[in-house]
Design a protein around this nucleic acid. Structure first.
Length: 870
RNA sequence: GGCCCUGUGGCGGAAUUGGUAGACGCGCCGGAUUCAAAAUCCGGUUCCCUUGCGGGAGUGCCGGUUCGAUUCCGGCCGGGGCUACCA
């Protein structure tokens, strides 16, 4: 394959991607084709791909993601929309600080160098991006406005400070959000997370839990799985909150214990109560009861380790306290401190009904507590129904429950709730799994929280005119911890209220804050305020958002919250509280993995193909080929987009990324596939050159088209129809297949001089140029020019299919006998049922099967099928 | 454990949502061109039986609904994702 050694003459047989691509990129640049300007006379279309983190290298996954976005952007532009397709960088975050620590390079320098390197790579892809709107979240102009938003949100009560137990990553020396703790380990460092108490800033996302939940119903252009994940994450449950009376004792003065349950129907199956080790009552008791403090300490330690959670052994400590059953003062239940009760859900206390909850059952078996079934499945006998190793959680009738006996579960719940309410003992309560978003980070490379702490005035917002609170540039990364806190002068300021000596907040914001509003900033990236009402009103919402499913929960939920907060502080119109109208989540790019005989991972360019497999290029040792998995540095199964573009050109890379696999699914990068894409572009180029010589530039088709020419026209217009709906439906792989079909059709009539063929051929080739332009824009421009057009494709409207050419005079109808296809007939598309039936019955194959007898039944579905039942 | 997605040729994947299973591409086989190769072009390619005509089977497995099921329903098996003691 000698893709890079081709002639530079545009008219020659060989297509020189490198030269062509550079040339068209300059042309687009010079003409400002993709600069978006507000224009109320045209419908707008805002397409956005999730902006990248500037790691330094463009990954092939980026190529796929941005190729998809570019298809949409270019297609919508051709359809007459005023398209906004901006670019930015999610530039704050830990890797920059790690680089600073490892290489002594300043995070800003490292980040901006990476951005420059990646921008250069990305520009080679020929994306139709409005580069004039580019920004990075670490630009002071951006984070100044983010600080402004913070202050407004603080004033409006959306952010607050509280002391809380936090997840502390001892390696990164930072606090992690609950969502950043995976199996008890830090999502980045993988270190075991500890618990520490710190004063932290939080966003009141839980206040919006209900709103965020119900609004999901209307996000009908989001994938169902993402909507479901968000629903589950918010985790609404409706239950009952009520008090147990604590029997008199000498351990505590507390007289009641509040619990939350969704299974109040099982209240008569209760055999114990359990409270979290972090429950206030448990903490009081630690001073009173020997061994409890040690038990709790042990639970807290094991609590976060992955293995312990996995094995989930239920452990408890009997406090000796007793509580009275709400419906029987003489019925006393023991109170345990238990490791499986979470403090931050419900009230941190539960009642245990072992028969109908697996955790409670495990616990009861371990501590020999009663197991009384109170719900009996309808197919079981109440007298003999017993619980063995598994709790029964299904539906049934209530038994062993006094006044509830015989009811179904829902009625029993209602009855308990009614009686509790009447007695003032409890009330219905809705609970959410969602927690408030803690977004303080003890890190340097993030947006400083614009607050000043004064001994007398407390936390005071930094004055708006003092924004941005800029990061100091002279910082020391040689000592662990937060460089802002250790900086000699930065944090010392006068209190804006009383003028006394005060200190700045040294925490910076979670980087999810940066990405929670960047989409709005793109509408007016240089505005001196967070947003410009006219611009944001015109461009928002994002019509199509594209990104990885890994952001299905965090980024998208925070953005939905932040947009609402921005609306309530006046920075977004109400119509923008759901900022992303449509969401598409694309799959990953995978590659085979290779290992040398000594078990080391090998990269694809360290090996070469031989008969029946691969060998290591240097040593000739045999290579073991492993499964195709997500490209990652550690497995070395990565291909560098820059190499691909240098060898084949951007169009080939884009084309291959869009063919074959549906965009939502993973795609496997193969050399053969890339070469196939390259050959296809060469083939199209040959056809264009051949056709350019034999083209008619007439604007109307000649009369009396020959059958061949008419047939090509029909194929062309069917392709227009198909490709259009495929792109609309994000079925790029199918659009690609249809383009192949049209290319093959043009290729078949190569050299034909049938009447009208010159017209049909030019129509087909021009259609090919425009329809392929969203995927392979450079090639399309070059082909368009070669065909003698004076405009450029990027400014040319999308073709419209001629309805009259989409219909056929005759259609082929399959004939089934007993549901098996036996024959086919050709009929007019509007042939009547009786005509079709008559034709079908006359068919040889049908006659053979019938052997003179009558059919039992004939089903005719006009335009579809005929089925003869014998 | 819970919830969700998914299973179609040698491979990636199509199938207008109940109507010709395998579009299109890759790979492979055969042929043309070539001194030869690359590139290109033409033909073939689900499997089994048959020289051919033709016939049979077939969308993970078992069953159901239907004139007709890759598509709908029930059960099982495999692969993947999210979540994880949420009371």
């Amino acid at each position: 394959m000698s893709a890079s050694t081709s002639s530079s003459d545009a008219g020659s047989a060989r297509y020189n991607a490198r030269e062509v691509e550079q040339r068209w990129q300059s042309t687009w640049d010079e003409r400002g084709c993709f600069t978006a300007v507000r224009d109320t006379t045209r419908p707008k279309y805002y397409v956005l791909e999730m902006f990248p983190y500037p790691s330094g290298r463009v990954h092939i996954g980026h190529v796929r993601n941005y190729a998809m976005g570019d298809v949409i952007a270019r297609y919508k532009r051709a359809r007459g929309f005023n398209v906004l397709h901006p670019w930015g960088w999610d530039a704050f975050g830990l890797p920059a600080e790690n680089a600073a620590i490892e290489r002594g390079e300043h995070p800003a320098k490292w980040t901006y160098q990476n951005i420059d390197a990646m921008r250069a790579q990305l520009k080679k892809m020929g994306l139709s991006v409005d580069w004039s709107r580019e920004f990075a979240t670490c630009d002071p102009e951006y984070y100044a406005q983010q600080q402004r938003l913070f202050l407004d949100m603080m004033a409006a009560g959306f952010v607050y400070q509280k002391s809380s137990m936090v997840n502390w990553d001892p390696v990164d020396n930072t606090v992690l959000a609950n969502e950043q703790v995976i199996d008890g380990k830090g999502w980045r460092s993988g270190a075991e997370v500890e618990r520490r108490e710190l004063t932290q800033w939080f966003c009141r996302i839980t206040d919006m839990a209900e709103e965020l939940l119900t609004a999901i119903d209307d996000l009908d252009k989001w994938p169902d799985n993402v909507r479901l994940m968000q629903r589950n994450w918010i985790g609404k449950s409706t239950g009952l909150s009520f008090d147990f009376e604590i029997a008199p004792n000498d351990l505590t003065d507390e007289t009641s214990l509040n619990v939350y349950t969704t299974r109040h129907d099982t209240l008569f199956g209760a055999s114990f109560c359990a409270i979290s080790v972090d429950h206030p009552l448990a903490k009081t008791l630690e001073d009173e009861i020997d061994g409890l403090a040690a038990f709790s300490a042990e639970c807290r330690k094991i609590g976060t380790s992955e293995e312990a959670v996995e094995k989930a052994e239920k452990r408890g400590f009997d406090t000796g306290l007793k509580v009275r059953h709400p419906f029987d003062p003489d019925w006393l239940l023991p109170v345990y401190v238990a490791n499986f009760v979470l403090m931050d859900y419900g009230s941190g206390a539960i009642f245990g009904c072992p028969a109908h909850d697996q955790r409670d059952l495990d616990f009861a078996r371990k501590y020999s507590l009663d197991v009384v079934p109170v719900v009996c499945p309808t197919d079981q006998n109440a007298d003999s129904f017993a619980i063995e190793a598994e709790a029964y959680v299904g539906p049934g009738r209530i038994i062993n429950s006094r006044f509830l006996d015989g009811m179904d579960i829902e009625d029993a719940k209602a009855e308990i709730a009614k009686r509790m309410a009447a007695a003032g003992q409890g009330s219905p309560k809705v609970n959410y799994r969602l927690r408030d978003w803690g977004f303080s980070r003890q890190r340097y490379w993030g947006c400083p929280i614009p607050v000043i702490h004064c001994k007398t005035c407390g936390p005071v917002p930094a004055p708006i005119e003092s924004l941005p609170v800029k990061l100091p540039e002279d910082v020391d990364f040689n000592t662990p911890g937060n460089p802002l806190d250790r900086h000699p002068t930065w944090k010392h300021v006068a209190c804006p209220v009383c003028g006394a000596a005060a200190v700045r907040e040294t925490d910076t914001m979670d980087t999810f804050a940066d990405s929670s509003w960047y989409y709005a900033r793109f509408t007016a990236p240089r505005c001196e305020e967070p947003t410009d009402a006219d611009e944001v009103g015109y461009w928002m919402n994002v019509d199509q958002y594209i990104g990885g499913v890994e952001h299905a929960i965090l980024h998208l939920l925070y953005s939905r919250f932040w947009a609402r907060a921005m609306h309530r502080t006046g920075w977004l119109p109400e119509t923008a509280i759901e900022p992303f109208d449509a969401l598409f989540t694309q799959g990953m790019v995978c590659h085979e993995t290779y290992k040398s005989p000594d078990g080391k991972w090998l990269s694809p360019d360290e090996i070469k193909p031989v008969e029946g497999g691969y060998v290591v290029t240097e040593t000739g040792a045999p290579v073991t080929v492993g499964p195709s998995i997500k490209m990652s540095k550690s497995k070395k199964n990565v291909v560098d987009p820059e190499d691909i573009i240098a060898q084949y050109g951007a169009d080939t890379a884009r084309w291959f990324m869009l063919s074959d696999s549906p965009p939502e699914r993973d795609v496997e990068w193969t050399t053969a596939g890339a070469e196939g894409a390259w050959r296809f572009i060469q083939k199209m180029w040959r056809l264009v050159n051949e056709g350019a010589a034999e083209c008619s530039h007439a604007t109307m088709p000649p009369s009396n088209l020959s059958d061949d020419a008419l047939s090509l026209r029909k194929i062309t217009h069917k392709a227009i129809d198909g490709v259009t709906s495929d792109i609309e439906g994000f079925a790029f792989n199918k659009a690609v297949a249809r383009i192949y079909e049209l290319v093959n059709a043009v290729s078949r009539v190569s050299g034909s001089t049938a009447h009208g063929m010159d017209f049909a051929r030019r129509e087909a080739l021009e259609t090919l140029a425009i329809m392929s332009s969203p995927m392979i824009p450079h090639f399309a421009e070059e082909a368009w020019a070669r065909l003698g057009s004076e405009t450029i494709v990027s400014e040319t409207p999308w073709p419209v299919a001629d309805e009259s050419l989409l219909k056929d005079d005759l259609i082929v109808l399959p004939i089934q006998v007993n549901g098996k296809r036996r024959s086919e007939i050709s009929v007019a598309p509007d042939a009547s049922k009786t005509d079709i039936e008559a034709l079908a019955m006359a068919d040889d194959a049908v006659q053979r099967v019938l052997a003179g007898g009558p059919p039992k039944k004939v089903i005719v579905v006009p335009g579809r099928i005929v089925n003869v039942v014998v």
